[in-house]
Amino acid sequence: MTLELISLAQAAAAHAPDAAAAAGITGSITMGLGGGGAAIGVGLVGSKAVEAVGRNPGAFGNILTLGIIAMALAEGLGIIAYLGGF
């Protein structure tokens, strides 16, 4: 039993660099998904803002303001995901 525990500990020590690399991969996946989600959010806000201005050109100023705020919030979530990956 003790010999099995020693060999298990040696195997874990031999693969420690692999565990660090796997942690980096999951962080990269998190950052990539967060950035992709932010890009999709900004694209949707932009497309809906253009559509809204097309329907009601008189509300351009209000739509622009709300669109910029919504895009900033979407980008903020992307930045949080980027920082959370570290």
Rank of each mutant, 00 (worst) to 15 (best):
G34Y: 03
T26V: 12
M31V: 14
L33S: 01
S28N: 12
I29Q: 05
A22K: 10
H15I: 13
A52Q: 13
I80W: 10
S47E: 14
A13S: 14
S28M: 14
L33H: 02
G43M: 06
G84D: 06
I40K: 13
A22S: 09
L77A: 11
G32H: 07
T65H: 07
E75T: 06
I79A: 03
G36L: 14
G84H: 07
G61K: 11
G84T: 14
A9E: 04
A38V: 02
L77H: 04
N56E: 08
A22E: 08
F60H: 09
V45E: 05
M1S: 12
T65D: 11
F60L: 10
F60S: 05
A72V: 04
A74C: 14
L5E: 11
P57C: 01
Y82L: 15
A14M: 04
A39R: 04
I69Y: 00
G32N: 08
I6N: 08
A21Y: 02
G34M: 04
G43K: 03
A14C: 00
A38N: 03
A39T: 04
D18N: 11
L3S: 12
G27V: 03
A72D: 01
G67N: 10
F86W: 09
R55K: 14
L64D: 06
A22N: 06
T30L: 15
E51L: 10
G67E: 09
A74I: 03
A16L: 13
N56A: 03
G43A: 06
A39P: 00
A22P: 03
T26D: 01
I80N: 06
G46Y: 00
G41K: 05
L64K: 15
E4L: 13
E4Y: 09
A39C: 02
G61S: 14
G54S: 09
S7F: 07
H15A: 12
L64W: 11
G61I: 09
V42N: 04
A19I: 15
Y82G: 10
A59G: 04
I68F: 12
T2F: 09
H15T: 14
E4M: 11
V50N: 08
A70K: 08
L77R: 01
L77E: 02
F86V: 11
I80V: 14
A13G: 15
G61H: 09
A49I: 11
L5K: 10
A11K: 13
A59E: 07
A39I: 05
P57S: 01
A23N: 11
G34A: 12
